[in-house]
Write a protein that binds this DNA or RNA. Sequence first.
DNA 1: CTCCGAGAGTTGGAAATTCAAACCCTCCCC
DNA 2: GGGGAGGGTTTGAATTTCCAACTCTCGGAG
Lengths: 156, 156
Amino acid sequence: MAATKDPRPCSIADTLAVVGEKYSLLVLREVCLGNRRFDQLVRNIGAPRDILATRLRRLVDAGILTKRAYSERPQRFEYRPTQAGLELEPVLMTLMAWGDRHLHRHDDRPMVVEHSCGHELAPVVTCRACGDTVRHEDLTARPQAEGWTVAGPTAA
Amino acid sequence: MAATKDPRPCSIADTLAVVGEKYSLLVLREVCLGNRRFDQLVRNIGAPRDILATRLRRLVDAGILTKRAYSERPQRFEYRPTQAGLELEPVLMTLMAWGDRHLHRHDDRPMVVEHSCGHELAPVVTCRACGDTVRHEDLTARPQAEGWTVAGPTAA
DNA sequence: CTCCGAGAGTTGGAAATTCAAACCCTCCCC
DNA sequence: GGGGAGGGTTTGAATTTCCAACTCTCGGAG
């Protein structure tokens, strides 16, 4: 999963290098839902057990999950999201919203998330400074490293 | 990339089935930045050419990109995001924000995005209904299919 | 004491993907 | 007619994934 050539330096790529492998974000989904045990994860995610074990190790190493024993004798472990892991939940919600909109009929969504405000959660990405919904036309990227440019939007 | 066993039905998984393969979201990053040509994508993403060709086909098939000739004789093509593709940009921004926060020093971010409001973009995921920032403790998931439950938060 | 099952992985080998480099084709230009 | 540029495809070798079976530790039932 190492970057091959000399690609654009970018936090999107860096983040995906940590959580972009197959199943990683689904592991995070499950632990955020409160499912913390290996066998639950295997069942709910549908991943091969060995791959799941590899992903869990990686996520723990990356500081996104913690592993702790919930029972000595017999030793049994559970995985929980760290603060950093919880901060990825908005990514999951945004992915879910896209899938709900583009991959399902509105009346046939696989899962509904309720917000404590009493309404169903419809996540919207906004600009912290002005509060407006983030739209492509309002964005301008500025690479910080030399040699890297963007082609300018010129409309989609 | 097909779901193996009988995993939890979920739009996160469905979305990742479309854009979750290695490089797919980086392709989207580049086309959103305005880089539309095959060789640019190869260079900026650092993906093998054959893999990139496969990903582009898939993203076009999924309705996330369009492929169009920008020159006949010699035939030359470019890729652009569709509306559905642009609607994934908030996912990219949210991933970027996480990477900026957790993988870099604040003064050494690889890329800065400016919002048209005049400030640097700091994307925040909010609830459309109440406008509040989405936080883990405020969410409750309700699976729509039978047999699928969540374990309840019981705090992280 | 023995057998059974749960939980949490590990192992081995076959199947699928990825990678890198080289190759191809169509033009344009000198 | 030789050299790019642009946009891929081909070819093996190197990695990963997948699946089933296996392991190991206990707790409890009979």
